[in-house]
């Protein structure tokens, strides 16, 4: 088991390196730092001196991967590649290009608001969607099931942004229950969190509910379910003891991959509700074309996803005895 986990972790390293190389290529090879400087400073009226100054301030004036002017290890370390790609592995993200603030510090403070929304949506959502799907499966091939599926299909055909806009309009503007957007300190933040969480839950219902229903329906057609019925078990017991347990394996392992990424939050939700999380941080960076922040977020996002993959493998071994004992 431990060996297995170690193997998965080691396997993640080349992938992370690959991600790093792709981002480096995108940010420094496709366009040169000169291009970026020109763009940041305004394409038309820009002097070569201004470009050089801009690059020097951010350390982009050095060679890409090999600094022949330096001695020893510095030939490698005093380069753009080392400073802006290799250092990421040590969570040294550097400073933002737009305002010069430390990205690492921003990330560590901004991830909590993101988590405060994403985690409840994830946990409550999982429970709610599984229960909903089981309900539909229990009443399968009845009018209730059909209505549920139709509702799911309609719900998943609506863009997530309409849920947010609709929620804000009805709950905040018409009913005046909670603020439209913003964020508070400590426990007072709950007033700002309720609506994003509820909207997030509503948004996920259609797709997840239908997906889980399909999984459970697939399980309910298996031979062991027939065996359980032949034992004289009640339908509810067949569902909860046999179908649920087996169906949860693909569901759990399917959602575990998303757990680490909860820190990143949702770009759209946070931006609409003015939550100062990592999602809105990313959007701000995109809008101000702050490449250092976008680069850091790409690396962080990939890292968390890869951790999610490892967790998925581990959860598989925990959830499925066929793999646990193999």
């Amino acid at each position: 088991m431990l060996r297995y986990i170690i193997r998965r972790i080691l396997y993640a390293i080349p992938i992370l390196i690959g991600v790093n190389l792709i981002t480096f290529f995108l940010f420094f090879i496709v366009n040169t730092p000169d291009d970026m400087a020109r763009m940041q400073l305004g394409v038309k009226r820009v002097t070569p001196e201004a470009i050089e100054r801009w690059k020097a301030e951010r350390g982009y004036d050095r060679p890409v991967a090999w600094n022949a002017a330096e001695q020893g290890m510095a030939k490698l370390t005093n380069t753009i590649f080392f400073d802006h790609s290799v250092r990421l592995f040590a969570f040294d993200f550097g400073a933002a290009e737009s305002d010069g603030r430390d990205i690492g510090h921003e990330i560590s403070t901004r991830m909590w608001p993101s988590l405060a929304i994403a985690l409840p949506v994830f946990v409550v959502g999982l429970l709610a969607y599984v229960s909903f799907a089981l309900l539909l499966v229990f009443f399968r091939a009845t009018a209730l099931d059909t209505a549920g599926v139709v509702m799911c299909v309609i719900a998943m055909s609506i863009s997530g942004m309409f849920y947010i806009i609709g929620g804000q309009y009805v709950v905040s503007k018409l009913w005046n229950l909670v603020p439209i957007s913003g964020f508070g300190d400590g426990l007072s933040a709950w007033r700002f969190l309720v609506l994003p969480v509820v909207v997030g839950l509503a948004h996920g219902l259609g797709e997840s509910g239908r997906w889980y229903r399909t999984i459970f329906l697939e399980e309910i057609n298996r031979d062991y379910v027939r065996t359980a019925r032949a034992k004289g078990l009640r339908e509810s017991r067949v569902l909860f003891r046999h179908v649920l347990r087996n169906g949860l394996i693909p569901i759990l392992t399917g959602v575990v991959v998303a757990i680490p990424s909860l820190f990143i939050g949702s770009l759209v939700t946070e931006s609409f509700f003015g939550i100062p999380g990592l999602g809105s941080y990313t959007i701000e960076a995109i809008n101000s074309q702050d490449f250092a922040v976008v680069r850091s977020m790409v690396f962080l996002g990939s890292l968390l996803y890869i951790i999610g993959l490892i967790l998925t493998d581990i959860s598989y071994t925990l959830a499925d005895p066929r793999i646990r004992f193999d």
């Binding site: 940010f27 496709v30 366009n31 970026m36 763009m39 394409v43 990313t282 976008v294 996803y305």
Partner: peptide, 27 residues
């Protein structure tokens, strides 16, 4: 696996931003 490790929105954002730079510097 490597490509799908990068969250879609972020990869798209990075690529589109880079294209934006290219388009702005080559009007």
């Amino acid at each position: 696996t490597t490509l799908s490790s990068i969250p879609d929105v972020l990869l798209i954002a990075a690529a589109v931003l880079m294209m934006q730079v290219y388009m702005d510097t080559h009007p």
